[in-house]
Each structure stands twice: as C-alpha cells, then as structure tokens.
Design a protein around this nucleic acid. Structure first.
Ligand code: SF4
Ligand code: SF4
Lengths: 162, 162
DNA sequence: TCTATTAAGGATATAAAATATCCCTATTTC
DNA sequence: GAAATAGGGATATTTTATATCCTTAATAGA
C-alpha cells in the first residue's frame, strides 16, 4: 500500500509555487525540469490540483500554474487528497455476510467494529495531514535548505515564471 | 492506495481464533468456509500470520491454526503489518537531487520536511492501530452481534476445531 | 493576423502489484 | 498405510500505477 509518486511531485510543486511572486505563473515544463520529472505525466498531477481548486491556471506563453490560496490556507491533506483521492484505505467487503450461521434475511446494521477501527486509523492519518499547512512546510524547508541553494532555486524559478 | 483484502481476512480470522478453546486448532478450510473466501488464497494470509509469529500451527487431520498469544497481547497493528508489511506509505524518490541549482557534490542530510511530515502521518495511523487490542475487538463484537448469531457461530467453529 | 506556447484531457501502451489457482512436500492423526 | 493438514513454489489473471502521444482551445506577443 504505497502512495502514488505523484503525491510527492504535487507536494514539491506546491512548495515551489508558494515562492512565486503574486500574479505570476509557472509552467509544467519548468516544474518538470526543476524536479527532473516526465513533463507529460507530471501534467496529470497538476491537472488534479487544478480540478481540486488548489491552483489557478492560465494558457498561452507565460501561462502555467499558481496557488489559488495562500500557503497558510493549504494543508498537506488538501494536496495529498487532490492527487490520491479521498477513499479510505480499508474497504469492507462485508465478508460477515457469508457466515453460514447467519439467519436468512438477517441484515447487518452499518459497518462492524473491524471497519470502524480501521477507518479511525485512516482518520488519524488524515487529521495529521490536515494539521500541517503548506506555509509550515515552507518555513521548515527555509530552515533546512542551505541559504545559497534556496536563493539560487528561487532565482531559477523567477527567470522562468510568466 | 488500498489495503489488501487479506488484511480484512486476517482480522476476521484472528477474531474467530480468539474464541477457540485453549489447545484447539482451526483449519484453513473451516476459516475459508466460514467467511466465504478462496481457501488457497486465504492460506497465504494465514501463512503471513504464522511467519509473523502471531499464530501457532500444527499439521495433520485436526491441524490448523490457533493464536500464539492472548487476545489482549495482540494489536490490530500486529495483524495488519503481518499481512500488509510495515513499509511506509510515502516513499521518497529524492527528486530534490534533480534540482538544477544544486551545487555539484552537494549531499542532502537525511529526509527532508516533506518526507518527515508524511511519515509522521503514517506513524499516527500505526499508533491508532497499535492502541487497539484484539481483545477490544472481541468485546465490541460481542456487544454488536446478536447473541443468537454469536452463539451459533461459536458452535459452528467448535464442531470443526481439531 | 499569425505563430508559438500553454493547460486540458482523451487514447493508448507498459510496468508493477494484487488476486487467485495449482501442485508438490513434509508432517501428523487415526 | 491412508487421509488431512500447513508450507511454499510456480504461474496465471486482473487491476492499478506509470508513462507517452496527440488533439483542442486559449493566450501572449511579434
Ligand atoms: S466484519 Fe466489518 S469489516 Fe468485516 S465484513 Fe463485516 S462490516 Fe466489513
Ligand atoms: S524533498 Fe523530501 S520527499 Fe522530496 S525528494 Fe527530497 S527528501 Fe524526498
């Protein structure tokens, strides 16, 4: 059970977009080049962000993506769910219905304890991701990444932003 | 990102095994029939439980599986990880290494903030599963399931336990 | 107006993982 | 000795993830 690599891509891309000056856009091409990713496939991840309303887009030369909200208004969960979907990791196949002892016509009322517990674990995962904002990530990254690299990356992006 | 259905199977089987009288075993055949599952494939899940040391097995007629520990000593996480593995859901492909601005020979020190946050969410999921014991599940089920069905299921199992 | 560039999205191909079955072996019970 | 069992290797099928290709409509700038 592993998340799509697009989740990582989307998170990185949002982190880059967060550093974009207001009103500017960054293209798929630039984002793919910066991260060393296949442009066409990364495009699908960015489309997911767009469909989820997390980013704004514009067409034409100098077109591309920018965040639709402030980094403090975007959570990890928003980004992860945009790409990965919001389905639960545990799906109940209702195997209890096969119990040979079950009275004919007996109908279970809602999910059993197994499902409820697994879903609570899913919710704990979501809650953690919901508690971290994109702005928190930027703050941590700015502390972790050498100032020199941080600066040159910022300039690299700015040169290509439309 | 969905858990294998074997996770559900393993949890259900452990719940059944928890009701087995001390020293008795229940076969794959009986567990498969009770849950309406493919015997050969369920067998793989039970083998996983066995390899993880969660259940004891014995061969021959009247052979099968029983819990290796008391239900209070078995957590959901034990069972889930036995079947699903203990890998993290977020794998870091180190795409930051492709950053064109990165100084030659520059070597990152450990996982970045993105990976750390995603791994914390994984840990929150695990922590939740670790906090629920098999005995807790049995207790809840015994309250949820109609007494009649609970009793007949118990008898069904007992008839087939070696 | 014309050209280049872009996001969106449909179609399709490839690779990997989950699901499922089959068969053989060693062990145990009777 | 015969029947039943877990273990496990080999293999097939189905589903999902990964990746590429191509067409369309919008936009910027010459
Ligand atoms: S016991 Fe729970 S998880 Fe299992 S089939 Fe029933 S509802 Fe689903
Ligand atoms: S930024 Fe973090 S998650 Fe992304 S590649 Fe680097 S270490 Fe991995």
């Amino acid at each position: 059970m592993i998340l799509k690599s697009q989740v990582e891509w989307a998170l990185h891309c949002c982190a880059i977009l967060a550093g974009l000056p207001a009103g500017r856009y960054l293209s798929t091409k630039a984002l793919a080049e910066f991260h060393g990713l296949p442009k066409e496939y990364l495009s699908k991840a960015l489309q997911s962000l767009s469909q989820a309303g997390l980013v704004d887009t514009t067409l034409g030369p100098s077109g591309g993506y920018r965040l639709a909200k402030a980094p403090a208004e975007l959570t990890f969960l928003d980004i992860v769910e945009a790409v990965e979907g919001n389905a639960r990791t545990f799906v109940c196949n209702n195997i209890r219905a096969n119990n040979p002892c079950r009275p004919l016509g007996y109908c279970e009322s809602g999910p059993c304890a197994v499902a409820r517990i697994m879903w609570e674990a899913d919710e704990a995962w979501r809650q953690k991701l919901r508690s971290v904002r994109l702005s928190d990530l930027i703050e941590t990254l700015s502390r972790d990444i050498p100032a020199e690299l941080w600066k040159s990356s910022f300039e690299w992006v700015l040169e290509r932003a439309g």
